[in-house]
Design a protein around this nucleic acid. Structure first.
Lengths: 218, 218
DNA sequence: AATAATTTTTAGACAAGTCTAAAAATTATT
DNA sequence: AATAATTTTTAGACTTGTCTAAAAATTATT
């Protein structure tokens, strides 16, 4: 039986390993889980024993097929629950994360699959992230950060990188959500801020915001 | 912060203390949680320190107001989730318990209250047990075990005592559910079995079944 | 290539919750 | 009321996951 802590390590390692196919190092895991490197070393040995990952001393860690499967399953549950909370229980997109972090660990195959059906087999969660299906399959959408968007083009918002409450509240306040149409008016080379057009209003957003907002070309 | 284990102890103590206002003893708690008496003693001291209950050495344990509040809140969550699983996710009444045991520990005031609203503020769960409201209030229904029902009277089924999968499957197989109309035809003094009439069919149930099936007079 | 800085691992300790075995208190029996 | 049976508690140990501090390996710098 896999423990809650083990699941959280596997999830963190999955997310850290997503870009670049190289190994995930101890300090990165420690930082992401807000724990100490020595604790990570201990746990990583245990997870290697259980065949969730391959571990080379001083080299870092990489998930096995088995570990990958576990990670994707947790992510599937997390995102289904997030969507459930927003669609059925009136949560806002900045409120869902904390609760979904708990719900993702509930163990019941039937529960996940019935929830999936209840929500009509959705493909994306409230932050625009893809939801893996029963078999772990999901397609990533071709998205681009606002900071890398091209002047004069028009896009729609398809997701966010940062899911912190503060950032999501900022977006809400400025009427930016999934599906919002955004035209790129001007990119300021001095501070990398970007001037955009939303419906009728114009808005200047900082580099920080621009980096964390994902768009798709219309 | 209260731990999962503490919550389970408090819930068990609440259920054990419901009949008779006297103290709940160590062995009873140990048996109900399938643990050892020595473990119970340790935990009970901890719960007393945290003011969830009053504990007198060798005398047993009784929940405080604070402990009672925690217990009722867990029961509220358990029963709301059970109803959700049956009503929205196609679970049968014998499948819900195990999953609800997990879901009842999710911590989010908003989640519980929104779930309550989503289900239209229900008053009873799929086993006929009352669901406490936001303020912990609930009315117990005047129910009677089939074994104590009176010959010739007609009742409706309002709940069960035993919620084991086997018992609930037995009831399903014989078309007995919440709201089923039951007429008591004959009580056999020899083995305490009871002959009942369901719609058109007649059925003889054992003493064991009769003791675990709750009825209300029509 | 030698030294410095950083990263990672090891060793030993701690808290939570559990266990076994033995001691202490309570309850039942004669 | 003394002894027997039962229940409860204590004492000490184990597991999981964590920590600090020190040692070892790797990477960066000169």
């Amino acid at each position: 039986m896999i423990t809650l802590t083990e699941e959280n390590y596997i999830k963190a390692i999955y997310h850290l390993g997503i870009h670049g196919k190289n190994m995930v190092n101890t300090n990165a895991i420690a930082e992401s889980l807000e724990t100490k490197a020595s604790s990570v070393t201990d746990m990583v040995k245990k997870l290697a024993d259980k065949k969730y990952l391959n571990y080379k001393k001083y080299q870092g860690v990489i998930l096995t097929e088995k570990g990958n499967y576990v990670a994707i399953n947790i992510i599937r549950k997390h995102r289904l629950w997030e969507l459930f909370l927003v669609e059925k229980l009136n949560f806002t997109w900045d409120e869902v994360h904390e609760v979904a972090e708990q719900l993702e660990h509930i163990k019941s195959e039937k529960l996940v699959n019935e929830l999936d059906a209840f929500l009509n087999f959705p493909t994306h969660d409230p932050h625009g992230d893809p939801i893996p299906d029963k078999n772990g399959k999901f397609n990533k959408i071709e998205k681009i950060a606002l900071s890398k968007a091209i002047n004069g083009n028009t896009y729609t918002c398809v997701g966010v990188q940062d899911t912190s409450s503060d950032f999501l509240k900022y977006l809400d306040k400025n009427n930016i959500g999934l599906g919002t149409t955004i035209e790129v008016l001007h990119k300021e080379p001095f501070d990398n801020s970007v001037k955009i057009k939303l419906n009728t209003t114009e808005l200047v957003v900082s580099q920080n915001v621009a980096k964390n907002l994902y768009l798709k070309i219309v």
